[in-house]
Simulated assay, not measured.
Amino acid sequence: MDTGDGRPTDAALAERRRLINLAYRMLGSPGDAEDAVQEAYARWYALSAARRRAVAAPGAWLTTVVSRVCLDVLGSARVRRERYVGEWLPEPLPDRTEWPGGSGGGSADPADRITLDESVGMAFLVVLESMTPAERVVFVLHDVFRYPFPEIAAIVDRTPAACRQLASSGRRRVGAAPAPDPGQAHQAGVVRRFRQAWESKDIEALVGLLDPAATMVADGGGLVGAVLRPVEGGANIARYLVLMAERAPGLTLLERTVNGRPGLVAQRDGVTATVAALDLVDGRISRIWAVRNPEKLGRWAASAGTC
């Protein structure tokens, strides 16, 4: 099939999955990422056939547009988040086999699937949130997707030297965060014991699985009940979790992959109420990110079953 500019249709469309992956890491929201990529394609197909023929590398053109759209979105998002009720967290991702749509619960469009690797871990995305929009875009382009600084400079309209400084600043932020335990099997075992202790309301067991300096952050977006400030300290988190279990009987806790790492999902009557991403350091849970905002849980509707 031909687009009318002498180039096969898939020359531009083949870039879609890479662009979705790029935009999600920049924005922390699959929906916003899809919107940014759609905007880039709308601009591409709004070009005349002659102008599309003049573009030697459609992928590079689309990357430039997506990155600039993301930069604009990040700038406006900072203003919106000042009015956000409580803590803001990135939208969590289920395992690719559990995305709604298509047969078997998979994504209806494989090009929309986001690759689950260390660059979409909740800890990494939260650090990205601490960066300025320019830092984040440059850091993701260079350190995650390995674009050279001269190309990034052309994308963000800055000098290569300025881009190096932005990437270096972002790298320092990432380097300051504790390194999580890499072993998936080990993590899964700790998460399972944590689930069992939570279900049995065993405060002593919960405290033993939590780092004494652990932190729990909840995002309800003002739409559902959630603690508005971080809960600090393993003992305080354990007591809070038990209190939650007592106030919300009937919750089912499921072990699920959250952003590529073992996590927990809380359901009530089959409806996902909370998705918890967990971070482990030295064999203990050091961070809990509990996403409760229902607007961020749409992709978890297909998650079912028990562990």
Rank of each mutant, 00 (worst) to 15 (best):
E255T: 10
V138I: 10
E34S: 15
G189N: 14
V65T: 11
T97N: 08
R25E: 03
G298T: 02
C70R: 04
A123T: 08
A23M: 07
V217N: 07
E15M: 08
I237W: 11
S200H: 10
R16A: 13
E34W: 13
V69W: 06
P8A: 08
S286D: 09
D282L: 08
V69E: 15
G6C: 10
L62E: 02
R173M: 15
C307Q: 09
E199S: 10
V275C: 02
R43C: 05
E118Y: 09
D211E: 13
S107Y: 06
V127F: 12
R292Y: 05
F139T: 15
S48E: 04
D202E: 07
R247Y: 04
V281E: 07
G225W: 08
P30H: 07
T159E: 00
W61L: 05
R261M: 04
A161G: 05
V242M: 12
E135A: 10
L27G: 07
G86H: 09
C70K: 06
V275L: 02
G233H: 05
G86W: 11
W300G: 00
V66G: 06
R287P: 01
L297G: 02
L125K: 05
D211N: 10
R193C: 01
W99R: 14
R68L: 12
E118R: 15
V126D: 13
Y240L: 11
A238D: 01
F139R: 09
A36D: 04
E34V: 05
L116T: 01
T257Y: 00
A197F: 04
G270W: 03
A276Q: 10
L93R: 08
E91T: 15
R247P: 00
L116V: 00
K201F: 04
A108S: 15
L251W: 02
G101Q: 06
G189H: 12
F124P: 00
R83E: 12
R287N: 05
L19R: 03
F145Q: 05
L62I: 05
A273C: 11
R172V: 07
A176Y: 04
P100E: 03
L71R: 12
G263V: 02
E246S: 13
Y84D: 01
V271R: 14
Y41R: 10
E204I: 09
I20F: 06
P90M: 10
V85Q: 12
F124S: 12
A266W: 01
F149L: 13
A12G: 08
R25M: 06
C163K: 00
A154Q: 14
